[in-house]
Computed example of a mutant assay.
Amino acid sequence: MMIRKPIGMLDSGVGGLTVLKAVKERLPHESFVYIGDTLRNPYGNKEEKDIITYTLQLADFLVSQGVKMIVIACNTATAQALKEVSQRVSVPVIGVIVPGSEAAAKLSQTKKVGVLATRSTVDSGFYEETIKSFDSDISIESLACPQFVDLVEQNDYRSENAKKVVAETLEPFKTATMDTLILGCTHFPLLAPFIQEVMGEDVTLIDSGALTSQAIERVLEEEQTRAEADGNPSVQLYTTGSKDAFKKIAKDWLETDQFTIETIALERLTDKHGRNEHSSHCDSK
C-alpha cells in the first residue's frame, strides 16, 4: 500500500538531515530513505548541468527504493533541478525554497528580506523570484556563504572558529535594515545561534527546511498517503562517501541512533531512450 511506502529525501551531503529531523518530528509514523551525495558535495560551486545530473541520479535511486514522495532537501538542488525531477518521476516532488519564501514574505514588516545561501542558489535568483511571487514589493538582498557549508560538513559548527567565520561573513549584513533572514541552505540552521548573535534579536531567522515539513504533511493529506500509527517506521540512510563520517554526524544531528546506514556508489548509464539511469552498489560493512 502507498501509505506504507517511505518518503524519499535527497541532498548534496549531510545538510538535509536537518530537514529529515524536522519532518520526522512532525510525522513520527513515516518511514524515510535519505541519500546524501557526500562524495561530490558541495553542489553550491558546481555548474548547473552537473547539479541537474547529480540530482536526477539521486532521484532515480530513490524511485528504485519505492518511495511515495521525493523531498529535495537541498536549496541548491531545488533551485537548479526541481523542474527536471518533477518532470522525470511520477511521485510528488517537494523542494525547500517555496515554504521559506512564503513565510518570509508574510512575516517581514519592513519588506526587506535577506537570504543566506550557496553561490549557485544566489546566482539562480530562485529565492528572489519566489519571494516576489508572494509579495512584489519586497526587496531582497542575498549573500553567498560557501564557508558555512564547509563548517557544517566538517562537523565544526559549534567551535570558536565557526563563530568567527560567521561574524566575518555576515559583516556586510550587520548594517542592513532587513527584519527577516532566510537560511537558504539546509546546513545553515546548525549555525543559527551564531547568525542570530550577529544579526540581533530583531531579525527573524527563517529555517526553510523546518517549514518544508508542513508542506510535506499537506501533500500527504491531499494524496491520502499519510502513514498510520500502527506501522513500523524506519529510517534508512545512504551516503556516497564515508559511512563512518556520515554516521557520526547523523547520530549527532538526529539525536538518535535508530537508523541504518550504507555507502552507495552511483554510476551513470544511458538506456536506449538516451535517459540517464543508474546502477548501484551498496556497502553496509
Results as ranks from 00 to 15, higher is better:
P146M: 09
R275Y: 15
L17I: 07
A265R: 12
F61A: 07
M1E: 06
V33K: 00
A245L: 10
E84I: 13
M9N: 01
S120K: 13
M178Q: 11
R4I: 05
A176F: 12
G125S: 12
S142L: 11
P28K: 06
F188C: 03
P6A: 02
T239D: 13
E221P: 01
E267L: 13
Y157A: 00
Q80L: 09
E102F: 15
Q236M: 15
V23D: 07
K248Q: 02
L143C: 14
E228S: 04
A227E: 05
V85Y: 12
Y54N: 11
P146D: 04
Y34T: 00
L205R: 03
P92S: 12
L116D: 05
P92T: 11
K112G: 04
N75H: 04
K164E: 12
A73C: 06
C74R: 01
A79K: 08
V96Q: 13
A229L: 10
I70P: 08
E48M: 14
D123N: 14
L82Q: 14
A79G: 08
L58P: 05
I249A: 01
M2G: 02
Q65A: 07
K5I: 03
I7P: 01
T239F: 15
V98W: 14
E221A: 08
G125W: 11
D271K: 13
L183R: 00
T130Y: 15
S86K: 13
A59H: 10
Q196V: 07
Y157G: 00
S279I: 14
I51Q: 15
Q154D: 11
P28G: 09
T78E: 07
E197N: 04
L269D: 13
I70F: 10
E171Y: 09
A229K: 05
G15E: 06
G209Q: 09
V165Y: 09
Q214I: 10
Q258H: 07
V113N: 02
I195T: 05
S213W: 00
F32N: 02
A215P: 00
A176R: 10
A250H: 00
V91S: 08
K285D: 03
L170P: 13
K83L: 13
E217P: 00
G8D: 02
E128K: 12
A22P: 09
A162R: 09
E47S: 14
D137W: 05
D37P: 00
K112P: 02
D283L: 11
V149H: 04
I216E: 01
S90P: 06
K247S: 06
D202V: 06
F194I: 02
I182S: 05
P172D: 09
V113W: 04
R158Q: 09
V93Y: 09
C282V: 10
I3P: 03
Q65Y: 04
V219D: 02
A144K: 09
P146C: 08
R268A: 15
A144Q: 10
A117N: 07
I7V: 03
G36M: 02
I3R: 06
G36C: 02
K111Q: 04
I35R: 00
K46V: 10
D207E: 05
T240D: 11
R218L: 05
K251C: 01
L181F: 04
Q80H: 08
K164T: 11
A229T: 07
P6K: 02
